[in-house]
Design a protein around this nucleic acid. Sequence first.
RNA 1: GGCGACGUAGCCAAGUGGUUAAGGCGGAGGUCUGCAAAACCUCUAUCCAGGGGUUCGAAUCCCCUCGUCGCCUCCA
Length: 460
Amino acid sequence: MGLRISNTLSGRKDEFIPSGETVSMYVCGMTPKFHPHVGHARLFVAVDVMRRIFEYRGYRVRHVQNFTDIDDKTIARAQAEGITPEEVARKYTESYFESMASLNVLPAHEYPTVTGVMSRIVDYVQGLVDKGFAYVVEGDVWFEVGKFPDYGQLSKRTEESGMVGVRKDLEPGKRDPRDFALWKSAKPGEPSWPSPWGEGRPGWHIECSTMVRETLGDQIDVHAGGQDLIFPHHENEIAQSEAYTGCRPFARYWPHVGLVMTDNEKMAHSLMNFTTIHDVLGKYDPAAVRLYLLQVHYRAPMAFSEDGLVSATRSIRTLKLAYGGSDEPTEGECPEAAALLVRFDELVEDDFNTPGALGVLFDTAHEVNRGAANVPETAALRAALRTMVGVLGLPLDVEAPSNSSSAAPFIDLLVETRSALRVERQWAMSDRLRDRLAELGVILEDSPRGTAWRFSEDRT
RNA sequence: GGCGACGUAGCCAAGUGGUUAAGGCGGAGGUCUGCAAAACCUCUAUCCAGGGGUUCGAAUCCCCUCGUCGCCUCCA
């Protein structure tokens, strides 16, 4: 059975049938107006896993992800920080890349920006005007929803049912409450770009339609984003694109990633209730963070919790132990390893079921840790585990930062001293050292090869 | 009000028609260890928000109720 993907457009889980040799995937990226938070991390890790699974299943993928580098919020942030909107965008775009590199998120093949495609956006808006889908009112350009009969196909809203709650006070010149801005005339002091309708800047949705067309073409395979973008953003994107190109569906598969919740509301910059990825990575192993994010199916809402991160930190150890063993040459067949991989493949193909797949990883890790002496099977099992870890993108190769602490030389010294005491069989003294270190958050592990230490994950 | 997502053990979470309901964390016991830690082994949901219904058979399909969240447009 092949890959199946939940598709907001069809309202079902659909079998994935590629349109060509390469899977085209567009992801609504972030507005770089502050450091990315855990909600962003979840979205981009989820999308990263989708891409890795496509590639694992033998597809080539072309992944494009935008930055909305100019909008009301970047302008507001620029004023707050006393820098230009460009500087805001640059600063937080860098922050984005840092966080994503730590989480082992593969870079997209292309990162278009609004400012980078401005002239194409103007052309696109002009095209919609020419085709009769948009009208101009005093420097503003509006998309006329009434001209596009399929409006609401993604969000399942109809004019009668879902639109009743929209604002009643129309902006000047707007013909229908549902109409939305393609181009907004500049207010004094705002950044603006020239257009046939005067100085202004693009509306919120048009940049994505333009960028998709510029980078991937008139129809794409996969369009992903957060669940909060279904309406109006993705709905409007579809309207613009299908009106412009006449090609439908604009995107064939629409997987939407559930939101990260904190205190029973979505984590969002605008709600001031977020935890940045940077902060989380300061306290937790990146592999644990990624594991934590993949432990919930991407479509379900996810409650952010430190307990979950602590739990994931403990879990990751089992995986690391099995993953990091020395390499023995693999010889012969290992039916058990093959069976585990089959289980893994089936789960991963079924709408990117990472929580289910992680169950297989732990089963595999236990098999490896159990049979460390049984060389051929262990090698095959470990190879299978490495394959799975690669598909999920868990950064198990990366050392947790603990041993690079500035306290490390002193802890090493204490451990060394204790080892000497142990040789003398001075148990009372050596145990006291171990207990005192434990109180300070340093855990000692004795083995025939010597004594290793690590920081407790519970330290605050 | 409309549309959508969700409600499975102490916590997190797979499973969406059929033998014993994955896995992780936590907990209990054991092996190992000078004692620990780590690792490994065993145990830890007669039951899937509640109530009806369909079926030989449902956590899984249908209806209703309750609860949580998201979206409802140039955005606080």
